[in-house]
């Protein structure tokens, strides 16, 4: 089970405690979202979390400091999850070096297509970190091949066309994508976008190596962060086997 949260929402100091709660509740990997002012792949829940985090002074350097803080007490794998421009501004090589030093295990930049990924992948991999890419129901076979080639650690499957956010049901497009992706890779597959309930998780258990829950966690933090651990445990209930990623 992979848990996403926007680092720095509502304040940078709160994030390590939330991560600990998610880990106790059963999260096997944490995606630390670095807020960006113009998150075109995100729905309103994560957009607003990003706005709160930016207002609270969160930037990429601060998120790396948060990661280092988490690392003092936890071995949970950490994936930096953001958009290209903050990483570009920080510098890929500097990012790779500092992320490694902070205990980050890998990166995912949602708006970096495999065509534009060369410099970024080289810098991140040279530092010994993984690069995770998205695969979508609209991806052609040719593109899935490229996604497999540029990804390490795992591949993040987008369950449906759309932005991040909670949905009633898992899209019909989800399962065919799993089959198509397996034809091109032996990497573990994680599925995300629109997954928000234990029922969703149950329907995917055994079909992919991991599921990603994001907006539902961000909303729980906004509504009542004291119940975060219980909320995470509820989501993890349907999973019998822990995901082995990284």
């Amino acid at each position: 089970m992979i848990a996403y949260l926007t680092a720095g929402d509502p304040t940078p100091d709160a994030t390590p405690g939330f991560v600990a709660a998610l880990e106790r509740g059963g999260a096997d990997l944490i995606e630390l979202g670095v807020p960006f002012s113009d998150p075109i792949a995100d729905g309103p829940v994560i957009q607003q979390a990003g706005d709160r985090a930016i207002r609270a002074g969160t930037n990429l350097a601060r998120v790396l400091a948060i990661a280092a803080e988490i690392r003092k007490t936890s071995e949970v794998p950490l994936l930096l999850f953001t958009y290209l421009n903050p990483a570009l501004r920080y510098g890929f090589e500097r990012l790779a070096r500092d992320a490694k030093a902070s205990g980050i295990d890998g990166c995912l930049l949602t708006d970096v297509s495999v065509e534009e990924a060369g410099d970024y992948v080289k810098a991140i991999r040279d530092a010994g970190l993984d690069t995770v890419f998205l695969a979508a129901p609209t991806s052609t076979e040719e593109r899935l091949k490229l996604v497999a080639k540029y990804s390490s650690g795992f591949i993040y499957l987008v369950s449906r066309t759309g932005i991040t956010g909670e949905q009633q049901t898992i899209a019909d497009s989800a399962m065919p994508l799993v089959q198509r992706m397996r034809a091109h890779t032996n990497l573990p597959l994680a599925m995300g976008f629109g997954i928000s309930t234990p029922q969703h998780v149950a329907s995917l258990a055994g079909k992919v190596e991991a599921v990603v829950v994001g907006s539902a966690i961000v909303r729980q933090i906004e509504a009542d962060s004291t119940k975060l651990e219980d909320f995470m445990r509820g989501l993890c209930t349907p999973i019998l086997k822990k995901a082995a990623i990284f």
């Binding site: 708006d111 970096v112 297509s113 065509e115 998205l134 979508a136 609209t138 991806s139 593109r143």
Partner: peptide
Amino acid sequence: AGGHFGTYGGRYVPEVLMSPLE
């Protein structure tokens, strides 16, 4: 071929949009 004018331009979008752009 990738839509670059020198180092500018290109195609930086989430994977879902790559095939409609193609």
